[in-house]
Structures are given as C-alpha cells and as structure tokens.
Design a protein around this nucleic acid. Sequence first.
DNA 1: AATAAAGTGTGATCTTGCTCACAGTGTGTG
DNA 2: CACACACTGTGAGCAAGATCACACTTTATT
Lengths: 234, 234
Amino acid sequence: MIQKNNTLLTAVPLFSGLNEEEVRSLQALSKTRSYPKDNVLFLQGDPGDSFYLILSGEVKVAILGADGREYILSFLKSGDFFGEMSLFDSESRSASVVTTTAATFLIIQREAFLNYVTQTPSVLTKFLSTFSIRLRKTDAQLGDLALLNVHARIVKTLLMLAQTNVQEISAGQRIISKRLTHQDLASMVGTTRETVTRILNELKTQGHIANDGRKIIIHKSLHQYLDTLADSLL
Amino acid sequence: MIQKNNTLLTAVPLFSGLNEEEVRSLQALSKTRSYPKDNVLFLQGDPGDSFYLILSGEVKVAILGADGREYILSFLKSGDFFGEMSLFDSESRSASVVTTTAATFLIIQREAFLNYVTQTPSVLTKFLSTFSIRLRKTDAQLGDLALLNVHARIVKTLLMLAQTNVQEISAGQRIISKRLTHQDLASMVGTTRETVTRILNELKTQGHIANDGRKIIIHKSLHQYLDTLADSLL
DNA sequence: AATAAAGTGTGATCTTGCTCACAGTGTGTG
DNA sequence: CACACACTGTGAGCAAGATCACACTTTATT
C-alpha cells in the first residue's frame, strides 16, 4: 500500500524531482482517502485547510450560482491537484469540488504542507509555473466569455477538449475520450443544455463533428471553422 | 535618482522584506523607464521577457477581441507589478498592457529576474500568494460572467471599485476615486456603453448611487440591493 | 425483459441586452 | 473663448439565447 503510493508520487509531475528521502517525508505528512462518486469534497466559502492530490478518479471544480446553476472551471484527474490556493493565501475555498467518479486522494494538512513546500524550492517553483498556466487559462476564458458568442465558445471548448482528452487520432479526426453530457458542456461554456444540443447538431450537419456512441468525434475542419467564426466578427 | 528608487522599492509590498544588500543587487539588475499616456507596453501574443513594477502612473491590462472590443482585466497602479507570468512559464503574453497615464516602471529582464527570484524565498512566496489571490479573483469573475446578468455584474463591479479605489467615506457613502467612462465600465463588465449608461441611471433614480462630477458615489444601500438581485434569481 | 431514469431533440415564445442613429453636454486645448 | 472632441443620454428595432413544454431515445436497474 505504502509502496504503491511511493511509486505513484514520483510519477506525479508536481513531485517528480524528489529523491527517496523527500518522498518518505512527504509520505509521513500525508494520508490517503477514498470517496464514492458524486461526493462533495468542499464547497466554495468553506474554510480551507487541506491540499489534495488525485491518485485515481476524477473531480469537477465548479462555481455555484445562487439559483443552482454551475459554471465548471475544470475536470481534474489522476496526477492533478487542487486545494492549495486556500493554503497559500488563507482565504476560504473559491470554488466547489465534487467527485465525478469514485476517487482516492493524497491529502496533506495546512501546516505540514506549508512547511514542506516552502522548504522544497523545486516544488515551490512548480507551483509557481502551475499557477501561471492556470492564470493564463482563466484570463483567456474570461476574454472568451466576454467577447465571443455561444457558438464560438462551444467550438473552442470542443477543440480544447480534443487537445487534452484525446483518445485516438485517425485520418484527421480525434475522439474526445471524456463522456460529457450536453448539460456538462453547457456548464463549461456558460449556456443552456438546449442551446448546446442545437449547436452540436448544427456542427454535425456541417460535418465538423460526429458521434461515436455518446462520445464526440472532432473533424479536422473544426479548426478552420473556428477561424471563419472569428473573422465574421470583424 | 537611484536613492529615490531605493526608498520606493522597500515600500513596495512585493519587496518589502528585503535588506539593503538585496535592494542594491535588485537595483543592479533593473532599469527604469518612463512612457507617455496610452503607450502600448506589450500586446497579447508577444513573446515576453521582462517583468514590470509600476513606480508611478497607471496601466490597463486587457484582453483584445478580434473585432476591436476589449475586456479589461484590471487597472494597476504604483506598487503593482505585471509581466511575471511569461517569465515563470515561458509562454507568450496572455494579455495586453497599455498605460492610461504617463507612467514609470522598474523593468527586469528574464534571466536576472529568475535568478534573483528563485534565490530569494521570501519573494517567491510573495508571488505565490499574489498568484493565489489573482486566481481567486478571476475564478470569481468567471462565475459572475457566466451566472449573473449585466445588472448584477455592474453593481458588483461598482462595489468592488468602492472597496479598492475609495476616496472618502462620509455618512454611508463612498466616492470611487477613479474616473471611469461608461465605456471603461462596459469593458470591465462585458457589456456595451449604452447598457452601462442606462443601468447607471436606473441605479441613480433608485438612490443607490449618485454623481460627483464625473466620479461615482456609492450609497450604502447598494449592498443590500445586490442581495435582492441575487435572491431574485432563486 | 420490464421499467425507471437520465439524457437528447425540437418547436414556440419571450426577454435581455445589442445595434444603430442621433441629440445633448461637458471639457480640454489652441 | 471658441471649437473640437470625448463622453453621455435615449428611443426604436432587432437578434441571440433563454425558457417552457413535451416527445423521443438511450442507458441503467431490478
């Protein structure tokens, strides 16, 4: 069991540079927990005092609206981590996290985490570049939300998914491995389920996408299509 | 001249913990530059290789849309800094920065910056908490953009400005010190100038805000008003 | 295999906020 | 002080998406 975590930890990019000694000390500070599907790990506004590293399974990070609607910031999976923000700035949790499959985590408490991280420069700089990447992503997303229409946002999101969740590439078409409902996509894009259905079908008849069961196949032409959408705004 | 920067530097939160020696070495790595109003410092997509600390003046950080519209991420002023993201993750600039007044900066090039920062843990952790705060802000903003209507977004933005740019407090009302055009506000909120004009006038007749010349006075009642807006979405 | 539950498809209608067009009002500069 | 330019105000019409209401299909569950 401990052995298993051990091998996993160094496989995680965040902790990849650690030597055996460092891994052991990290191990001592952490505990492992498993949760079933659809389990709320924390809600936005909660005081936050722990860091989570996903060992297996998937979670959804989302912002909840007053009326029950949600905006999905991201899906995270094995090797990804979350919950560190509240530890660095001592604010409450800024978003909610829920498991979307059964999942197990490596969890580290505030004190231990901060001691450990601030004394391990390589980890510190990794967090810095991770934050930098995330910030870049959210900035771009803000721009999209403010400046693009739903059509373009959906196409962009599909292309993004095709980049990060590819299953296989075959003759200019990629399958998005993740099984997403139209409602999921709507919550990622900031629109309604019905609108997603309509636009997806439009894209289908135009030959830019297709279906493999419930998964979406992205055709190469979708890239060019996005360009034409951008141009038409000029 | 050098003396002047010296005093300023330790006054900047980012470098507040530095001793005289550290300030001197930082000084050696940096140069000071001044630019007129409306000067483009860099555009999104540019390769980024320098860090900017604002010594005086103000800049606007914005994302530009294909059609010339912009989404304003923030206004930064003396003591604030920007441009560090591209240094940490080696990606191109994610947003554009333009001076909104004449302004002077302390500028540090990539190499020097990274050497310096990675060897000064106190600065490193300051960046970490700064990023954390920014990320939190952008996440919240994404939620607002996706889940709230224009009305609520404008009210929220006014309240935010009233918190960060207060001029004076007098009997339950605060003046936003920054002089913003309706177009500025529109670009911060993701709407059009006309809509801002209309909603601002509506808020005025409802007694939640007033004008002092071109500046906006926020009445206490605006807080409660935001709550009723949130409730009406239930 | 039967039944429930979750997800998708689609029309009709309604609403918010955008666009366009122009008038009015400050405000800064030669 | 006048002239221009930037900013604000407001009506009318329009359009993108939201909402509502069901029918239909696929996927789980017993």
